[in-house]
Design a protein around this nucleic acid. Structure first.
Lengths: 234, 234
DNA sequence: CGCATCTTTGATTAAAATCAACCCAAGTGG
DNA sequence: CCACTTGGGTTGATTTTAATCAAAGATGCG
């Protein structure tokens, strides 16, 4: 318990410009927690008691609709904040957050937010930059859904994941957590069948290698051409 | 020019909790401007020199894609902020804003944002609430695009517009600015043809009345049933 | 080994885009 | 004041895309 110290968070973009002493104060009020694979970090509509910083692992943020559809909003990578409902004037979480793998996170009680905002202006500014870029992302998603065909959207999604969590292997760049066809479908507004067909076709063309809950991008540049619609479908 | 005073903005949700004296200071630094119909308030990628408060009229915020598609992000109604790129850590505007009708707005230089944020905490909080709800809206849009059919999305869009800007008439509730089939298509990710067919069908069923750049919703409740997919298509 | 979950692939269908005309209303300018 | 032009709008026919329906294969875990 006494093992939390500022080295955990120093150097993260969200804490850029925050003084070392302030980092200590911030970390001092956090509790650390581990979340097992497939367990929730927080749940849609729940009282937003805490906000979180993911230290290790990957978390999938998703919304469920009344009629049983699931839409994946984003994946959170280490170093990112999540559950910051309070910063946006909400008192409940807007989505479900599920650990995609075993995770480690820091958590602060939500009622600390106003204090943090007042005492650590750099942290506040950085947080709102994060919010700003998430708003951007969401708008980009809307535009993609409005103007692109599924193959472009799936290609974009894979490239985004590769950029966010890609790990070099000798075969190409691996998306570094278990991800199913269904998961990709939920990110792109399509069905697992269509995703499966696309991945099969791309595998035949040597653009990707994929297996059970595993995708490796072999030719990112080719995939980008598909994402931008600059290539004929075969 | 000396005619700007706090009565213009007192009572707006964004200024809730701000002291009267502070309102004076805020208004004192604004310049007021009028924007003629179809003229831009600001443009995508431009340096974000100012942020705005719409006093009167309606502004369409839209993004253009490289390949010539236009996607409408939202309509701004009187009392709402726009162009607050700076609050989100951006230095350029993320979208185009075009006056849908003749408009009146207040504008502040963007460099005032940090000062405002420091001096008027209620204003800051309220602004981030706005940002939060726009993030919500964007996610809702993504979910709608992922899980609903066009008729549901168009119905949802009409209901949203009606709620935002609806004006009671003896025929029903009129969307209070000129809006074409094409505009609705750009809000819902479909084509003007499909929108036209839907509106024609709904007109036959007596749910809406529509004409050139004009839509009146006659039976909001019926439209809601369509929006929620709880009604068979004829 | 057996069962849960994923994945693949074929056949069919449904939804909406695209292609193609044509109509109508509202300005504009001679 | 009227002809003409332009920007919407409607509607039919056709085509495309991707969902849905259906049935088997893999894969990996307990």
């Amino acid at each position: 318990m006494g093992s939390l110290d500022r080295s955990l968070i120093a150097g993260l973009p969200v804490f850029e410009g925050v003084a070392a002493a302030d980092l200590d104060r911030i970390v001092g009020q956090a509790r650390s927690l581990r979340i097992a694979k497939d367990q929730p970090v927080f749940e849609q509509e729940q009282e937003a008691h805490s906000f979180f910083l993911l230290l290790d692992g990957h978390v999938r943020v998703m919304k469920s609709t009344p009629d049983g559809h699931e839409v994946t909003v984003r994946y959170i990578s280490p170093g990112e904040l999540m559950g910051i409902a309070h910063a946006l004037g909400r008192t409940t979480y807007p989505a479900n957050a599920i650990a995609a793998v075993d995770c480690v996170a820091l958590a602060w009680p939500s009622q600390l937010w106003p204090t943090f905002a007042a005492d650590f202006p750099s942290f506040t500014t950085n947080t709102y930059k994060t919010v700003g870029s998430r708003l951007q992302d969401a708008h980009t998603r809307v535009i993609e859904m409005s103007t692109e065909q599924v193959d472009q959207r799936v290609a974009h999604a894979l490239l985004k994941l590769v950029k966010q969590t890609g790990k070099k292997t000798e075969e190409g760049i691996l998306i570094n957590f278990p991800i199913s066809r269904q998961d990709i479908a939920e990110m792109t507004g399509t069905t697992l069948h269509t995703v499966s067909r696309l991945l099969s076709a791309w595998e035949d063309q040597g653009l990707v290698k994929s297996g059970r809950q595993k995708v490796t991008v072999v030719e990112p540049h080719q995939l980008l051409l598909i994402a931008e619609g600059r290539v004929e479908k075969s």
